[in-house]
Simulated assay, not measured.
Amino acid sequence: MSAIDIVYLWVDGADPAWQTRRQQAYAAWSEAHAGTLALHGNVAGRYRDNGELRYNLRALEQFFPGHGHIYLVTDRQVPAWLRASTRLSVIDHASLMPAAALPVFDSGHIESYLHHIPGLSEQFLYFNDDVFLGAPFEPALWFGGEAAGVNVFVEGETAPSFDDLRPDVAAPVNCATLSRHWLSAKYAGYVHAPCLYAHAPRPMLKSVLHELEALAPELFINVRQSTFRSWQNPALLPDLVPRWMVYMGHARQQVLDPLHVASGADDAPEALGQLLRRFGQLPFFCINDTCDEAEDDDPRLLRVAATLQQLLPQPSSFELESA
């Protein structure tokens, strides 16, 4: 099996220097782009560090010890607990994106550059740090075994559908609307499936992303216009990329509903209990921070932290002993 590299986006929203950059950038951006902020596009929960990356690396080392190189994409930040390793590189935004675009606080903008990371393997897994491996990694589940291409996962429920992009719907719905518009205009035989892609580790092929960027430069230009998440410029990697890969034969699609925990939801305790019972049998799971502007010591967040520590108590080789 060829190397499968790992790419994470990470931010520490409590960093004072980063907070200053965010506040100054948002003041300027919101004045120039009134009414374009996506739903929940700039809440504290989007940037809060709940320790997910530390536990994500623990899960990665436990369930996929043979992973390739890890690339951690950050904005002038490095986790205080991170141990230097020949298996991990910190990629600063400034080394990946044009200086004129910085700073950037829209993950859709940032992730549109991932395939430009120098040295990245052809096959790679892209993780948001709130999505974890939950069982031993099986390459054929993600990269199709001996066949070329990747496997992508959709949720079982039918997704809401709208004719146009809207400011009052969740980002994944606007991502699907953008996909339908572009793919229907580009390919006469395209039929849009009324589904959303699971919030999962995303198997990617570097050459295929370069192919799409060359085919549709306007899409990448548009998503790279946003300093903050904009409902007018939806992200490409969560929906358009997998739909296009499926249509072009680069990917196969299957239904695989993940265990999705929303930390601010009323059913979070039950969902976390289910996670404790099923850990080790879940290909992946997601713990999404939906507490928005809550304080860091909010009981809902502390409950998530305690669950992760219970699941993954053993430090990884990427952690400093004293941290």
Rank of each mutant, 00 (worst) to 15 (best):
L276V: 08
A176E: 12
I6S: 01
F285C: 02
S226G: 05
C175V: 11
C195Q: 14
R83E: 12
F162S: 04
V154A: 11
H260I: 14
I221H: 13
M248T: 12
C175E: 15
D129S: 03
A80Q: 14
A159K: 06
S30N: 07
N288F: 00
H40C: 01
G45E: 04
R300T: 00
E146P: 09
A188F: 08
A147D: 14
H210M: 11
L120N: 04
L114W: 04
I287H: 00
M204N: 09
A34P: 08
Q232N: 09
V90I: 15
A27N: 10
V90W: 02
A171P: 06
G149A: 07
A170L: 11
A59G: 04
D75R: 03
T86A: 15
H33N: 15
E138C: 13
R180T: 06
L301S: 00
E295D: 13
S179K: 14
R300M: 04
S121W: 08
S184A: 15
W18L: 01
H199A: 14
I6M: 07
S207Q: 10
S226T: 13
P136R: 14
A32E: 13
H260E: 14
L256F: 11
F318C: 02
P283E: 05
I4N: 06
H250R: 15
L60K: 09
L178H: 06
L276Q: 15
H69T: 10
L259R: 03
A265L: 02
A268P: 00
T20N: 09
W29P: 07
F279S: 02
D267H: 11
V43Y: 00
D5R: 07
A140G: 11
R46F: 02
A25L: 09
L141T: 13
P234E: 06
R87G: 12
G35H: 09
L133E: 03
E293L: 03
V246C: 09
R76K: 14
P98W: 02
I91N: 00
S263Q: 11
W10F: 03
P98M: 06
V152R: 04
L301P: 01
H93K: 03
G108M: 04
I117Q: 06
A14N: 14
P203E: 08
F285L: 11
L209H: 07
Q77P: 08
A188K: 13
P258T: 12
L57H: 00
R229N: 00
P203R: 02
E111K: 13
H67V: 10
N288E: 00
H115Q: 07
A214H: 13
F284A: 05
A3G: 06
V152S: 02
R278W: 12
V261G: 02
S95R: 15
I4C: 09
L236I: 10
N42L: 00
N42Q: 07
R58V: 04
L196P: 01
A99H: 12
V208S: 13
V78A: 14
L282K: 10
P315W: 05
D292F: 05
L275T: 04
P194V: 07
F153K: 03
L178M: 14
D289L: 01
D49E: 01
P269V: 03
P103C: 02
L57M: 07
N50S: 09
G249N: 09
L120R: 09
A323C: 12
H67Q: 11
R224V: 04
F285T: 05
R180Q: 11
D239Q: 06
I117N: 03
V255W: 13
T177Y: 10
H260G: 01
A214Y: 10
L282E: 09
F228L: 05
L311M: 11
D292V: 00
